[in-house]
Design a protein around this nucleic acid. Structure first.
Lengths: 109, 109
DNA sequence: TTTGGTACTTAGTTTTACTATGTAGCAGTA
DNA sequence: TACTGCTACATAGTAAAACTAAGTACCAAA
């Protein structure tokens, strides 16, 4: 099963924040992890644009580190604003979940 | 609490299908119902564009009926394709819900 | 006759993710 | 050496969906 791409809008950024909150990581790794979490069709390009948006919006700190496995990696960590944004994201998500469950029940014939 | 608008993309169409599945209804009424279901900032224009998309994609049937309360109403009902699309929508939603819950647990520090 | 609620429409904009492609480092191997 | 494959990042252009903002029109009550 794959997730319809439109349904991801506004959710994907929160997901990436959540993954980074689990510990310093970088774009290529995030992509691979998401691919194994049901986001099969997600490609690197999409993740990189999100990471750059996070950086532009000052929700993360970035540190470049050399790797023995290829080119240098850009490691991302959440800063205070990032943590706050992530917390708000989950609140919104849970609220949406609740409304969706209600709608499903209320309008069932 | 209101739902962030970007998070709605791809979800709103399913929500509207779900409401219609509960019985023949029209745009203005759908808007009011959603406003009371946590979608406070949702305005008519948004709902109407979704309804027209549903009609264009042949997921609904439309019937115009006079009203004693103002101009004529356009009543929408789901057809077979609409029901199928709605069922798929809920499958996708539940899958996304599952993945989100997993992500929240897996990457918690 | 004017106000307010009901009801539908649409042009233009913004946001977000996708497509597609390019660049580059490094390891193993033929 | 040349080639393949995996690792890793970057980005220009496009598509989809919802929003903004404005308009039209019907009808009832004050």
């Amino acid at each position: 099963m794959k997730i319809s791409t439109e349904m991801l809008k506004g959710v994907l950024e929160g997901i990436v924040l959540q993954i980074i909150s689990g510990g310093e990581t970088y774009g290529y790794e995030i992509t691979k992890e998401l691919n194994q979490h049901g986001f099969e069709d997600l490609v690197e390009g999409t993740v990189y644009t999100i990471l750059m948006r996070l950086e532009k919006n000052k929700l993360v700190t970035v540190e470049k580190k050399k790797s023995s496995m290829g080119p240098a990696r850009k490691f991302y960590s959440l800063n205070a604003d990032g943590e706050a944004t992530l917390a708000t994201f989950w609140q919104n998500w849970e609220f949406l979940e609740k409304q969706m469950t209600q709608l499903k029940g209320d309008y069932h014939v």
